[in-house]
Deep mutational scan, measured.
Amino acid sequence: MPGGGPEMDDYMETLKDEEDALWENVECNRHMLSRYINPAKLTPYLRQCKVIDEQDEDEVLNAPMLPSKINRAGRLLDILHTKGQRGYVVFLESLEFYYPELYKLVTGKEPTRRFSTIVVEEGHEGLTHFLMNEVIKLQQQMKAKDLQRCELLARLRQLEDEKKQMTLTRVELLTFQERYYKMKEERDSYNDELVKVKDDNYNLAMRYAQLSEEKNMAVMRSRDLQLEIDQLKHRLNKMEEECKLERNQSLKLKNDIENRPKKEQVLELERENEMLKTKNQELQSIIQAGKRSLPDSDKAILDILEHDRKEALEDRQELVNRIYNLQEEARQAEELRDKYLEEKEDLELKCSTLGKDCEMYKHRMNTVMLQLEEVERERDQAFHSRDEAQTQYSQCLIEKDKYRKQIRELEEKNDEMRIEMVRREACIVNLESKLRRLSKDSNNLDQSLPRNLPVTIISQDFGDASPRTNGQEADDSSTSEESPEDSKYFLPYHPPQRRMNLKGIQLQRAKS
């Protein structure tokens, strides 16, 4: 015994090295194993092979420090690593049964499904019991997946119906949107047309105001020219009257000059006056001389005659003075006559000038009245044309509004008919989907599995289990394997941990 101590140590070291070499393959693929292994699927088989106990299973599945599946799978690998070579062998058998691809990844061999460990530990009855539990578990999982698949199909059909409904609603909204954009385009076109009409109206108003201003300026210029013409006519008439007055005065002077006595007659009258003065002096001298030589009687007679002569001279002087006064009065009367005649001529000139001015103003008033009548006639014609244009424009607008209203009513009726057609199509689609759903539900009910399987069917299934373990590994792997896509769409199922009653199965096998 003492001599065998070193050999035992060498043997233990060799086993430990082999164990480390075995687990080295697992550690190399630890990331892939932790990512894809579900500990809840492996722990029943590991407990059946007595590699882990209930406490280890509870620690792996329910520990609060292991929230994710990767953490739980890593903890399970750590626990199996502590179990040595047996933990490695049982772990590979569980991978061979549940995850053939991972088994091939770790060992590089094809899975054979021999279950040597569980046969050694529990015997064939334990293997049968384990396989029966796994089959029931798989059936329950398949039923749950079928239910989930039916629910998802129903949800899918519902979503398809909602999608069709949303599509129809979208078509309806597109119809309304198209109608909205069309009405918006019509409104924009009408606004552009309105702005264009306003611009045209403004341009016409500006043109009309400009023409009116030009016409008023032309009328004012015409009036100024007419006033200048009238003033020139007035000056012409005044000059004609002055010329006529000057002509009359010149004719009067000419007549006075023609009626003036001649120079010879004046000289002859002056000679006669001198001769008479000479004779008068001679007679006076004779009379003076006679007075001195005459007697007293003759002197008395001469005195009487002288007195008579003096009286006659006085009378004559009075007559001469009277004649002079009369001549002066006649001259003054002639001057007054000439003055009055001049005033008369001036008044006649003024009267004729005023008459011509009156005629001029009368003509001017007639011209202004004619212009006013023409302006009123043009204004009435413009008003009439404007009223006709406004009436025609309003009539066109009324007809346009009428046609637009008819078009809008027809478009609304068309839209309502399209919407009604879309709604009826939606109703038809809904009815078809309901009919299809009812038909599929009836087919699913016919094809669904019963909840409680008979014992004979279970025994028959387990009677055929042994050949399947040898020759149909691919079928078992397809039913027991969970793909990543299934984990996305289906909830994980945790079967209840219970042991099955095998009395009925044993009785059935005894009868057979």
Rank of each mutant, 00 (worst) to 15 (best):
Q85T: 13
T112H: 14
Y11D: 09
F115A: 14
Q85C: 08
T82A: 12
D146M: 14
M8H: 13
R35N: 05
N133T: 07
R114N: 08
E24C: 09
L80D: 03
S94Q: 02
L61N: 08
C49T: 13
L66I: 03
S68E: 00
G126S: 15
V51H: 01
P64V: 08
V90C: 15
V90D: 04
V60E: 02
A21D: 11
D58V: 05
V135E: 01
N25P: 15
P6S: 13
K69N: 04
G123C: 15
L66K: 00
L61T: 00
Y45T: 02
A40N: 08
G84W: 05
E96I: 03
T112N: 12
L15G: 13
N29M: 04
E122M: 03
I52N: 02
E122D: 14
W23H: 05
V89T: 15
P44F: 01
E121S: 14
S94R: 05
T128I: 11
A40Q: 03
I136T: 11
A40V: 05
I79N: 02
R75Y: 02
L15D: 10
E27T: 02
L22D: 12
N38R: 04
Q140C: 09
G123Y: 15
E125K: 05
A40E: 03
K50H: 10
Q139D: 06
Q48C: 05
G87R: 04
M8C: 12
M32K: 10
A21K: 14
S68M: 13
L66V: 00
Q55H: 11
E24S: 08
N25E: 09
K69P: 01
E134T: 14
Q85R: 08
E122T: 05
K143R: 13
H81W: 04
N29T: 03
Q48K: 03
R72H: 00
E57T: 01
K143Y: 10
E19S: 11
G84H: 08
V60Y: 07
M12W: 08
I79A: 02
R30T: 01
T82M: 08
H31F: 10
D78Y: 03
H81Q: 08
E110I: 07
L131S: 05
E57P: 00
K137M: 11
G84P: 04
I79S: 03
Q141I: 14
H124C: 15
V26I: 09
M32S: 09
Q140G: 14
C28T: 09
R86I: 07
E122A: 05
D10M: 15
Y88D: 03
Y11M: 11
L42T: 01
E110L: 08
K83V: 05
M65G: 01
F130V: 15
L15V: 11
E101K: 15
Y88E: 04
F97I: 08
H129D: 06
N71R: 12
I79P: 00
H124Y: 06
T82Y: 06
H124F: 07
Y11I: 11
L102P: 06
E18H: 12
E13C: 12
P111Y: 06
R114I: 13
Q140M: 13
E101L: 00
L105Y: 13
D20I: 11
G123W: 15
G4V: 13
L33Y: 02
I52H: 02
M65Q: 04
Q141F: 09
I52G: 04
F130H: 10
T14S: 11
W23M: 08
D20Q: 13
V119G: 08
E27P: 01
T43F: 03
L33A: 01
T112V: 15
M32Q: 08
V135M: 04
L22V: 08
V135Y: 14
E134K: 08
Q55E: 06
A40D: 01
E7D: 13
L92Q: 02
R75Q: 07
V26C: 07
V106S: 05
Y36G: 09
L15N: 11
Q140W: 07
K41F: 06
W23L: 06
L131Q: 05
D58K: 03
E54Q: 05
D53F: 05
E122R: 07
E7G: 12
G123D: 15
G5A: 11
D58H: 00
R86S: 10
D9G: 13
G5R: 12
M32H: 09
R30W: 05
S116Y: 05
Y11V: 12
Y36V: 14
E19D: 13
E93G: 08
E13Y: 09
Q85M: 07
Y98C: 15
L131K: 04
V60P: 00
P67S: 11
Q140K: 14
Y88K: 09
Y103S: 08
D78Q: 05
R113G: 08
E18M: 10
M142F: 14
L95F: 12
F115R: 13
L22R: 12
H129N: 03
K83L: 04
R47Y: 03
D56Y: 04
K16G: 09
T128A: 05
A144Q: 13
M132G: 06
E19F: 13
R30H: 03
E125V: 11
R30E: 01
N25R: 10
R72I: 00
D17C: 12
K83E: 03
L76P: 04
K137W: 13
W23F: 08
P6T: 11
Q48A: 06
I52P: 01
A21S: 12
E13M: 11
L131Y: 01
V119R: 15
K41Y: 02
G126W: 14
P6E: 13
R86T: 07
P64A: 14
H31W: 11
L46D: 01
S68D: 03
I52W: 02
C28D: 06
S94L: 08
A73P: 00
G87Q: 05
V135S: 09
T112M: 15
E110S: 10
K104M: 00
E13N: 14
A63R: 00
L33F: 05
H124K: 09
R47C: 04
D53I: 02
L95P: 06
Y98M: 09
T107L: 04
L76Q: 02
C28F: 02
K143E: 07
E122Y: 04
E121N: 08
E7T: 13
R30I: 02
T128R: 05
K137G: 09
V60T: 07
L102R: 04
Y36P: 01
F115L: 15
C28Y: 07
R35S: 04
G123V: 14
V89A: 13
G4E: 12
K83W: 02
L80R: 01
L42A: 05
I118C: 15
D78W: 03
D78P: 01
G126T: 13
K50M: 14
Q85P: 03
Y98K: 08
M32L: 09
R72P: 00
L15W: 12
H124M: 14
E122Q: 04
I70P: 01
S116V: 06
G74R: 00
F115K: 09
E24A: 13
R114G: 10
C28I: 06
L127G: 09
E27W: 00
G108E: 07
C49K: 15
